[in-house]
Simulated assay, not measured.
Amino acid sequence: MWAVDILDEVLARAAADPVVRGVILTGSRARGTETARSDYDVTIAVAEQPQPWRHSTRTDALDEVVCTVEALTDTSVHWQRYFYRDAKVLLDRLNGGIAELIDRQATLSAEEAALHARTSLDAYVNQLYRCAKSRRDGFAEAALLDEAESLPWLLETVFALHGRLRPYNKYLRWELESFPLPGDWNTALMPDRVRTASLRLFPAVETLARCHGHAEVLEGWGSDIELIHAFAEAAGADRC
């Protein structure tokens, strides 16, 4: 009942305000993964306001953000785009325009995916190279930290190579269960497996990247790749 009251109140305010163009429910409540402590994440799109974004309400029950329609068209801030994954449009006064903007936020174009894959792949290789050097030189603790830092780049790379946004950690399992990746990736990236698998998965990421036309990123690292291969192979053998 509390949930209905909150959304009813938000929608009633929105309906009475001619400036409002749309109401969007995001977060765990939209995805059906909420707990008893989950609040309601609501974005209100308006025709105009002095600033593009502002927090209007932030309580234990409701986190309400107001933005302009123009701000909602801006897809340049990559990290926040997953926020709109599987969002629910509760009010759309633009005859489907709000829904289109939300879908655009949550979906990478082919060009965006390719660019992000290249950038993330390079960062992933860089961090694994640091990990491999630390292992080679006997700095075991540093190597573990280096590998841990490579994990976000692994996830960014693999999802981008599949044309998708990397989910927030909280929603990684939900994403894989709701929208499975092909082949072995769905199992490999499950949270209980991937958290210690970044180095071991390098050969599979390399193969995937080459298949998607990113060989030049890998070849740009020259013979340094061989050091990563050596420790990736050892990590795979240790698991076996």
Rank of each mutant, 00 (worst) to 15 (best):
102 I>F: 05
121 L>Y: 07
211 C>P: 00
155 L>F: 04
148 A>K: 14
179 F>I: 10
117 A>N: 10
212 H>Y: 01
114 A>N: 14
147 E>W: 02
102 I>G: 14
161 L>D: 05
218 L>Y: 08
194 V>D: 01
193 R>Q: 13
158 V>W: 02
88 K>F: 03
171 Y>W: 15
87 A>T: 10
201 L>A: 06
89 V>A: 15
156 E>S: 14
173 R>I: 10
103 D>V: 00
203 P>V: 12
158 V>G: 15
223 S>I: 04
126 N>E: 12
157 T>M: 07
163 G>H: 09
95 N>G: 15
192 D>C: 04
208 L>Q: 04
106 A>E: 11
99 A>D: 11
146 D>E: 05
157 T>Y: 00
178 S>D: 11
162 H>V: 01
151 L>K: 13
194 V>G: 08
93 R>C: 10
223 S>A: 15
99 A>Y: 00
132 A>F: 13
189 L>M: 06
205 V>K: 05
158 V>A: 10
159 F>E: 02
220 G>W: 13
117 A>Y: 06
149 E>D: 13
186 N>D: 14
103 D>C: 01
112 E>T: 07
221 W>A: 12
219 E>P: 00
141 E>K: 08
221 W>H: 12
87 A>K: 09
212 H>S: 07
120 S>E: 07
191 P>Q: 02
143 A>V: 07
219 E>T: 09
99 A>W: 00
179 F>C: 02
146 D>S: 08
118 R>P: 04
219 E>I: 01
141 E>H: 09
143 A>I: 02
193 R>W: 10
158 V>D: 07
204 A>D: 13
172 L>A: 03
155 L>Y: 04
109 S>D: 12
204 A>H: 12
109 S>L: 09
110 A>Q: 13
197 A>H: 05
97 G>W: 07
87 A>F: 11
180 P>D: 02
154 L>I: 07
98 I>Y: 12
151 L>N: 05
169 N>V: 03
93 R>K: 15
93 R>Y: 13
209 A>Y: 04
217 V>Q: 07
145 L>S: 12
111 E>W: 00
89 V>M: 10
117 A>K: 03
219 E>Y: 02
194 V>P: 05
149 E>M: 08
